[in-house]
Write a protein that binds this DNA or RNA. Sequence first.
DNA 1: CATTATGTAGACCAGTCGTTATAATAACAT
DNA 2: ATGTTATTATAACGACTGGTCTACATAATG
Lengths: 186, 186
Amino acid sequence: MSNTREQILQTTCGLMEKQGYHGTGLNEIVKESGAPKGSLYHYFPEGKEQITSEAVLQSGKLTATRIQNGLSENSNAAKAIHDFVLNIAHHVEASEFAAGSPLTSVAMETATKSERINAACREAYSLLETAFKEKLLECGFTKTKAEELGTFITAAVEGGIILSRTYHSGDPLRMVAKHLKVLLSQ
Amino acid sequence: MSNTREQILQTTCGLMEKQGYHGTGLNEIVKESGAPKGSLYHYFPEGKEQITSEAVLQSGKLTATRIQNGLSENSNAAKAIHDFVLNIAHHVEASEFAAGSPLTSVAMETATKSERINAACREAYSLLETAFKEKLLECGFTKTKAEELGTFITAAVEGGIILSRTYHSGDPLRMVAKHLKVLLSQ
DNA sequence: CATTATGTAGACCAGTCGTTATAATAACAT
DNA sequence: ATGTTATTATAACGACTGGTCTACATAATG
């Protein structure tokens, strides 16, 4: 695997997480990644759509494994998810509210504009939902409940990140952690 | 109140809801609003930041009153919020997944980029949270619980809209409706 | 050594961005 | 009718956009 190509993708993930699809220019990616511009269209001949699609998918995979690893630290589902969301709150704060939710902006901007990027976003989100769902399955939830709650947890966390980044405070995410725990404990 | 000015603001609300801050150009606003081009900097001498801030706030106020009206149709909080979220699902579907969550994209894109727009987003979001909170207060929740749940509901609905727009399906929002009801009923 | 991919380097394109300056026009009070 | 202000029109600005192109270096293989 080419190192330059990987570098371009990672830089794209970071920039789009911070400022979305339209807010991120190819020149910016080139500059920040240190990659030569000639390489950009060498590795991604289909342009920005291709780079974005691959970056979105990469973000999804990375986030999904982070969820898996985070949740594996605790055998109780409610407690595991509670602590995991607290960790996100900390991460968002540590980034000065520029990180968290790497998919949101891109997903919203391209939902009805680019078939290709939208497909990547769907796949990425379903990876996240599945990661939560499987933890719930392990902990004895029925298949239906695990699926439904996987979606619900993803939505609540997603929304919590948005509020936390907007308010420049981890508190909304901490509220989400607390009440998800209530919901999962009953 | 100038009609042209109001038209520009409303058009900006709609376009930014669909495609975010960076995805919406001033020329596009001028064209779609039908407003004369020279009027833009006449009514908004501080440019795009000013237009966006005012549009965000207007979206927040409008959404907050929609929440109030929607929730007033049912005296039971859990049922009121459940039905209201189902209505959002329907609205998102009817828009072909281009509408819903008028603040999300702008809030994320500008959280660390524009002090002014960020302030408008905070104010707008707190209007939404308050709308939920007051319904809960009316229904007998304690002040603390109402506040916490107001934030949680806002986050969950916000996340549900993102998923629904991404998946091109109202189902995620319907999941959110269902499990919010569970949480609020216990 | 010659040949062929593969990757690097960046000038360059047409078009758009937000913004500004200037001027014409409309509305209105005096 | 005159002076004043509010509104609209036009064109241009410099910077940047995503994308293309050619020239060149390097490496691998024959």
